[in-house]
């Protein structure tokens, strides 16, 4: 276990204790997560990396309350989500969490603006307040002028920024992103990551991102490496330049899985 210094000292947003997750029947089960302990503080931008089959996406889903752990406890924003019922979880996700997916998961039948405002629709937000939030977040992400367009009329990068805006519009306690740059070309990818980094810094939004791309994780403030369902190591960026951090990540990957990084 390699640990760097320079840990941030914010409030704890996410606390995971001894998370394990098995799939399959009792007799023939595969343990995908093997007792993971994790703490994320407010304002962190955490990357999760690891080779194929390490359990990255499973961990994200479990932490993000989309899936349930087989054992262990998860506390987000002071609430123990692992004990909640489905209906409570839904409300919790809507109020406290934001999601960005690899393939955007926008609703094709809705315009950009409608997609972004969707999570706000059940929050009892006034139309004026919602409009302000839209203007605010769409301005930051540079998609305000595309508000009336349908997803098929905009580029992949714009779609993913729409997805990011949808994740951020409710001022969530935490945003979960699963391979957000997986379907983007490198230029759109770096633009999106740059924006996420900005939002993370300027708004203090806590972000957790699964990626297999070392460039993408170099935008994070901390990168966690998983191997075979367990925490292998973590790296803190501290005050390093992105380029230097990128080199650290590459080195770690070489140690972790030879020089082969999975290609999903």
């Amino acid at each position: 276990m390699v640990t760097n210094t320079n840990q941030p000292h914010g409030r704890t947003v996410l606390q995971a204790h001894q998370i394990s997750k098995s799939f399959g029947s009792k007799l023939n089960s595969t343990e995908v997560l093997k007792g993971i302990n994790l703490q994320v503080r407010e304002g962190e931008f955490v990357g999760i990396m690891g080779p194929s089959g390490a359990g990255k996406t499973t961990l994200l889903n479990v932490l993000a309350t989309i899936d349930r752990p087989t054992s262990g406890t998860i506390t987000i924003d002071g609430q123990e989500t692992s004990k909640m019922k489905d209906a409570q979880l839904s409300t919790f996700r809507r109020d406290k969490l934001g999601f960005i997916f690899q393939d955007y998961n926008l609703l094709d039948t809705l315009t950009v603006k409608e997609n972004i405002l969707l999570p706000a629709s059940l929050g009892g937000l006034s139309k004026k307040a919602a409009e302000e939030q839209f203007n605010d977040i769409a301005g930051i992400l540079g998609i305000k002028e595309h508000g009336h367009k349908y997803p098929h009329e905009i580029s992949g990068g714009q779609k993913q920024r729409t997805s990011a805006a949808r994740a951020l519009v409710n001022h969530p306690s935490m945003v979960f992103a699963d391979e957000p740059t997986g379907a983007l070309d490198s230029k759109s990818a770096s633009a999106l990551l740059g924006t996420l980094e900005d939002v993370n810094k300027s708004r203090g939004v806590t972000i957790m991102m699964v990626t297999h791309d070392a460039v993408a994780s170099s935008y994070c403030s901390r990168v966690i490496f998983l191997k075979d369902g367990a925490m292998y190591s973590e790296l803190y960026r501290g005050d390093k330049a992105r380029q230097a951090f990128f080199q650290d990540i590459l080195n770690m990957q070489a140690v972790l899985g030879g020089d082969r990084v999975d290609a999903r």
Binding site: T109, K113, E114, A130, E131
Partner: peptide, 18 residues
Amino acid sequence: QNGHIGLAGALSLAPLMH
């Protein structure tokens, strides 16, 4: 509605128009 379509609208109005 100017973008404030709401969940019910997103599931009825939008796909119907579509």
